[in-house]
């Protein structure tokens, strides 16, 4: 059994084939890292898993996708998304909601917490797990634009965690933030493994080396290599993976 199981998945966006027969398996309670050059289809792959791809007009998906044991293609997408948290490439906390409400809204929508006290608890728990609590504890009613970029991204992680998801999709969560904040986020990610399965996209080989249990290398819509992280980092078999891991791509 796998948390995510893709078989021969192809995606067409506006007539262009963006994913070309992707097959991959994400074991439960691991950090699965997807690497690949810009435009190789990493974001698209994540969007297939939680079916956000449905929002893109003219998108077509072929192949089979199993997520947490459900057939993602035929399962109700709204129900599916309740099981899956996502942190996007661009930090997107709701600008009109306070820090507190940004997290609380995710808990409420998913029925994770109902009473005021329950919500308080979940918000605190999520912010702690996202390594943000100490910095915002006494300013929960500030707005996201008063936060730094890295704090905003961690707020988005907290929002995703407040759903109590079983699967977490992270799309270059540290792309726009400084190394210190990035390290904090990495720590948070690794510490989450016991409770959730993490699929994470990153550009940084060192980051991948620090957090990954498994790695898949995506190139031009194809998985060119995948396997346990140690094995892949020690002996990358393809030219592309070698370049990518050396940071030359």
């Amino acid at each position: 059994m796998f948390a995510v199981e893709m078989n021969n998945v192809s995606v067409y966006l506006g007539g262009r084939q963006v994913l070309k027969g992707v097959t991959l398996r994400v074991p439960y309670n691991t950090v699965f890292v997807i690497m690949g050059p810009s435009g190789s289809g990493k974001t698209t792959l994540l969007r297939v898993i939680n079916r956000l791809i449905d929002l893109t007009e003219g998108a077509r998906v072929e192949g089979s996708v199993k997520v947490l044991g459900f057939d993602a293609m035929s399962y109700d997408p709204y129900e599916l998304r309740k099981l899956i948290g996502m942190v996007f490439q661009v930090p997107n906390p709701f600008p009109h909601l306070t820090i507190y409400d940004n997290v609380a809204v995710a808990a409420r929508i998913n029925g994770v917490a109902k009473s005021r006290r329950e919500v308080d608890e979940v918000v605190r728990w999520a912010l702690e797990r996202a390594m943000l609590w100490d910095e915002v504890e006494d300013r929960l009613h500030d707005y996201p634009h008063q936060l730094s970029g890295g704090q905003r991204q961690r707020l988005c992680l907290a929002r995703a965690l407040a759903m109590k998801p079983r699967l977490l999709l992270l799309d270059e969560p540290t792309a726009n933030i400084d190394p210190v904040n990035a390290r904090k986020l990495e720590e948070a990610i690794v510490s989450l493994k016991d409770e959730v399965t993490v699929v994470m996209v990153t550009h940084f080989p060192h980051q991948a080396a620090r957090v990954a249990d498994y790695v898949a290398v995506l190139y031009d819509g194809r998985v060119v290599e995948q396997g346990p992280a140690q094995q892949l980092f020690l002996r990358p078999t393809t030219d592309i993976a070698q370049k990518l891991l050396r940071g030359e791509m």
Partner: peptide
């Protein structure tokens, strides 16, 4: 409204109405 916010809504499991 940038589409990233719509995606955030659906990303946290919101129905269309929510």
């Amino acid at each position: 409204i940038p589409s990233i916010y719509r995606e955030a809504c659906y990303g946290i499991g919101a129905t269309r109405y929510e």
